[in-house]
Design a protein around this nucleic acid. Structure first.
Lengths: 309, 309
DNA sequence: AGAAAGCATAGGTTTCCCCTAGGGATCGCC
DNA sequence: GGCGATCCCTAGGGGAAACCTATGCTTTCT
């Protein structure tokens, strides 16, 4: 049976023109190489070297074999290196940004997905606050992140939209949920707003601001909080109402505000969810995996938008 | 250490989605395949299958490895088939020695013969000069050669006579060709001699020397040239006469010296044509084919002598 | 002619390959 | 929910293969 080991011995012998030199090169004793060559000749039914005096001379069969042997070994080497590059992913850390509402999609079950496919990896979800993610993206400490799209794309970042998510009105007051909320109704509501995107360019607020501005009403935010969970809890206690992503509402309301519900805005408003990475970055397999899984997950909840990069 | 065997087991397992099925396909017991996969995983430092309940599921590392494994096995298979095709003369290079006058017999039409029978092969006729052929035979770069027999066989070479060829006198002077040339007449002729055999042991000259020596005459070579064609051309221009093989005369005179002709020596002298190869060599099919065809061709021109090996 | 270089052979040890036998987990079916 | 079937793993043993050292033979160089 043909073996890579035989081919290696063969090639080294051809290159050095000597069994002894090949053995030395390979770190074996000379008879070992000799035996490998002999077994290769036997398995191929061909004489590869004519033993002449001191030294060996390759036959035409050997010359025929040579390029194929080289290609085979090259392919095997490529296989090894390809897998090893994955191995670094297997044993390394996947560091991925996901903050604001997006974090809810790319949460525990996403991590579970990754761990199932790559049992050895360590997963790090970065997303305590938007400033941190933005900063780490910019400095290259994070390869990529899932974000609610900012209206003005940050410099040096490539942003790829993957889905859109509806903005819904959440409240503990059934009466307010009876019909879609208009801008006018919104203006008179006590609101708690959470940061859902880049601090300076929070997309949700920007959308609301523009919407209300169109009909000459200014925002009336009552409370400002850091994270969506807190906002939802406050809504659950009836202290205020809020506007969040529909996907977040479906996930959080049952858990944090069982007595609250949600309804659409009128007209409906949408926020865009996207992947962001440094424009000049070459994404690693790990980042690609994370993006793929997160995208799939988001698109299974929100409305798909465009193609996966 | 990576091995083809491991890759084979791996691929079969991926394709069948089961170790048991792969083992059955490969004709092994299940634990054997299992062990191969495990050793492959260990040598790559990667988990290839997640053992889930009953059954195995390939990881992304396995998906990465798969195309490379396929390519490696394909390359190995190609290597095997390439060499086997050489063994059966479907392809490959036939390298054969033929120099001096013999080259005229084993010339273009011999090559055509070989190519007709084996369209895929490449033919290499080595024979620029005798030293080169002798050297390559001795060093094993040539398996076999057709030669004009040397009186003293070279050491380590087996020489098998296959035919004898008459030595004839060629001249542009019709008067000299009127009757067979005796030693006496030869002594007074201006001669051009070409190297026709091993440089040091040129058989033609040796024969002539012995012949003339018997009647107390020394040779009177006027010109020395490397190849027979040049000698014949000089004869054609009337600058000298020469002694060459009859077969060579018949082939070359019309082409190179149309005004010249040939006549026998008196008594007739013969040179022996033979096949030479290393004594300890096992001849390849390619060499045997070449020997057989060359022998047949020579014997159709010169007088057969002994049997084909 | 003697020394050096290179391959082959011989014999023994270690490693690897493959087998059979049996244990544990999961899945499907009563 | 129990039970058989399926599939993988572990354990241990036998045989082959790989590798080594030591040695002998041939060729080549000096």
């Amino acid at each position: 049976m043909l073996s890579l080991h035989q081919l290696r011995c063969f090639l080294t012998t051809v290159e050095h023109g000597s069994l002894t030199a090949a053995a030395e090169q390979l770190g074996y004793a000379q008879p070992s190489v000799s035996e490998q060559i002999r077994s290769l000749e036997r398995s191929l039914g061909v004489t590869l070297f004519t033993r002449v005096g001191r030294g060996v001379v390759p036959t035409t069969a050997a010359e025929t074999l040579r390029p194929h042997a080289e290609q085979t070994l090259a392919a095997a080497d490529a296989a090894e290196r390809a897998v090893r590059s994955v191995a670094t992913l297997e044993t390394g850390t996947i560091r991925f940004g996901a903050f604001g509402t997006v974090r809810l999609y790319a949460g525990a079950s996403l991590v579970a997905d990754v761990l199932e496919r790559h049992p050895g990896v360590r997963v790090e979800l970065v997303g305590q606050n938007s400033t941190e993610v933005q900063e780490q993206l910019r400095r290259g400490h994070l390869e990529a992140a899932m974000i609610a799209i900012p209206q003005v794309t940050a410099e040096g970042l490539t942003v790829i939209p993957v889905a859109r998510d509806e903005l819904v009105y959440i409240s503990a007051d059934p009466e307010r949920l009876a019909r879609p909320v208009t801008a006018k109704a919104l203006a008179s509501a006590p609101l708690v707003m959470a940061e859902a995107s880049f601090r300076a360019e929070d997309s949700t607020r920007r959308i609301l601001r523009r919407w209300l501005h169109e009909i000459g009403i200014s925002t009336t935010t009552r409370i400002e909080v850091e994270d969506v969970e807190t906002a939802v809890e406050l809504v659950g206690r009836g202290l205020a109402d809020s506007i969040i992503h529909k996907g977040a509402a479906r996930q959080l309301l049952p858990r944090l505000a069982p007595d609250a519900g949600y309804t659409s805005l009128r007209p409906k408003q949408w926020d865009t969810l996207a992947i962001a990475h440094r424009t000049d970055a070459v994404l690693s397999p790990a980042a690609r995996l994370m993006i793929e899984l997160a995208t799939r997950r988001i698109q299974s909840i929100a409305e798909p938008l465009g193609a996966v990069p």
